[in-house]
């Protein structure tokens, strides 16, 4: 157990060390999200801050996050396979430790992205939030499911020869139900209506995806 934890942390540390030396994911994912946000805000124009449109706005935030995630998160495994480092990793580490390390890295990346983009989003669209705490919990719940689900799908996509749009094709059906739930939750948080049920469902979804991913990852990762 202790050695498993050490392996997980070693994978996580390796990811961040490589990332901080190239800043590939941070810059591309951040800028991708920012440009999508500009596009949303620009095309909505003054309409964006009208009160009738308020119930629609959380949808945009989640669409921005979903697309930014699908641009950045698959790299976790695709890059390993492309550069030939997947085999040494396979030969050295326990599969579940690889998965947890990568999923934690993706989660930290996604939470950083959320922390970066949400203030911009709220500011640019002048969106008042009735219950900021619930909004933050919804972001966390969505982030966990998005990160864990994307990590497993990324491991699958990395084994394919044709990778381009395959990640989005495979990930969206898995993530759509979660997205529907967290959009409901963040909408409730904006309007100040109760969101306990939606949040509970979101965490249920997160835990089911996590358990399924841990069970399926070894067969996806290893022949």
């Amino acid at each position: 157990m202790l050695s498993w934890l050490a392996e997980t942390l070693a994978v996580l540390a390796k990811e961040w060390r490589c990332e901080l030396r190239t800043r590939y994911a941070l810059s591309t994912v951040g800028l991708f999200a920012l440009s999508t946000l500009f596009m949303v805000s620009l095309s909505l124009g003054p309409m964006g801050s009208s009160s009738e449109l308020r119930p629609v706005l959380p949808v945009f935030l989640w669409v921005i996050l979903l697309f930014a995630a699908s641009a950045g998160l698959p790299r976790a495994f695709v890059h390993e396979e492309e550069s030939g480092t997947a085999d040494p990793l396979r030969l050295s580490a326990t599969p579940s430790a690889v998965f947890c390390g990568k999923a934690l890295y993706n989660l930290s990346l996604l939470l950083l992205l959320e922390a970066f983009i949400t203030p911009f989003f709220i500011g640019m669209l002048a969106l008042p939030i009735a219950s900021p705490v619930n909004f933050a919990i919804a972001l966390l719940a969505g982030g966990i499911g998005l990160a864990v689900g994307s990590t497993l799908i990324a491991a699958m996509v990395a084994q394919a020869q044709v990778r381009g749009p395959l990640f989005a094709v495979l990930a969206f059906p898995i993530l759509l139900p979660l997205l529907k739930i967290v959009v409901d939750a963040s909408l409730g948080a904006v309007l100040g209506s109760p969101v306990d049920m939606a949040l509970a469902l979101a965490f249920l979804y997160d835990s089911m995806v996590t358990v399924a991913s841990l069970m399926l990852f070894p067969v996806v990762w290893n022949p």
Partner: peptide, 21 residues
């Protein structure tokens, strides 16, 4: 996904995992 993977063993494994998901 099946169309994107050439090796039958890998194709079977990945698509089985996806359908189990």
């Amino acid at each position: 996904a099946r169309g994107a993977i050439e090796d039958p063993e890998v194709r079977a494994r990945i698509s089985a995992a996806y359908s189990a998901l």
